Computed example of a mutant assay.
Amino acid sequence: MSPRGVAIPDARERLFEAAERVLAREGAAGLTNRAVTEEAGLAKGLLYSHFADLDDFVAQLVLDRFEAIAEEVRALPERAGRGEVRENLTGAALALLGTNGAALAAAALSRGEVARRVREAWEGGAPGPGAVEEAMARYLEAEQRLGRVAADADCPMLALAVTGTVHHLRMHGSVQAADGPESVRRLVAALVAAP
């Protein structure tokens, strides 16, 4: 346990990582202040030193993880002309799926206030699924200009189909975690035909 009054480096990230482990192990119902701080090896009150309440913590966790995903996918258009189109797009979709995607989605949906805060942040410009969809569309359009995606392909709709399906997989956990990557690969292969 951390000593009282001593600054904890990276406390916010330690709490986020601990919350992801708790979610993976116990689901949304197990996500409590005590469970997170014990998992992180930190004092119980530390969470409230960094966040207004548990809803604020969970909302910030979801927003932080989506920002990291958006940052990872943001460079996708720069990959146009390099590597295989399907593999590049699959990599971006798998980043969106994430390792704890379904658990994070369940945590957000199980708490109405969290869902509201996340939605408002996205409407206010915080990076979310829309940023990933936009990067995918720009990437596909760049590949289309290079002749690596069919000339008649509707790139924004392809990007929407990929992000929408991955969003469905995240929100509903409709495939086993081990099957998620294969489902995403099959989806991209079905949608993105070679020119």
Score class of each variant (00 low, 15 high):
158 L>V: 04
185 R>C: 04
153 A>S: 14
77 P>W: 11
163 T>V: 09
19 A>K: 02
131 A>R: 02
128 G>R: 01
44 K>P: 13
97 L>Y: 02
38 E>Y: 02
48 Y>P: 05
13 E>N: 10
113 E>L: 11
189 A>G: 10
12 R>W: 03
109 L>A: 06
98 G>A: 10
168 H>M: 14
116 R>K: 15
42 L>I: 12
109 L>M: 09
127 P>L: 04
112 G>M: 09
12 R>E: 09
145 R>I: 07
15 L>G: 01
149 V>L: 04
66 F>R: 01
118 V>N: 00
90 T>L: 09
50 H>K: 14
12 R>V: 05
158 L>R: 01
92 A>G: 09
195 P>Q: 12
16 F>V: 01
37 T>D: 06
39 E>M: 11
51 F>R: 03
117 R>I: 14
130 G>D: 15
15 L>M: 13
191 L>A: 15
158 L>H: 03
63 L>A: 02
46 L>N: 04
33 N>C: 10
28 A>T: 13
38 E>R: 07
74 R>C: 07
142 A>Q: 08
156 P>F: 11
80 A>G: 08
184 V>Y: 00
124 G>V: 14
161 A>T: 12
24 A>Y: 03
169 L>R: 01
144 Q>T: 12
67 E>K: 05
75 A>V: 15
107 A>M: 03
79 R>V: 10
167 H>S: 11
96 L>E: 01
87 E>A: 14
69 I>G: 02
63 L>V: 02
64 D>P: 00
1 M>G: 14
182 E>L: 15
13 E>M: 07
147 G>I: 13
144 Q>P: 04
30 G>F: 02
90 T>S: 15
140 L>F: 06
143 E>I: 09
16 F>R: 01
85 V>T: 02
138 R>M: 03
115 A>I: 06
15 L>A: 06
5 G>S: 12
59 A>W: 00
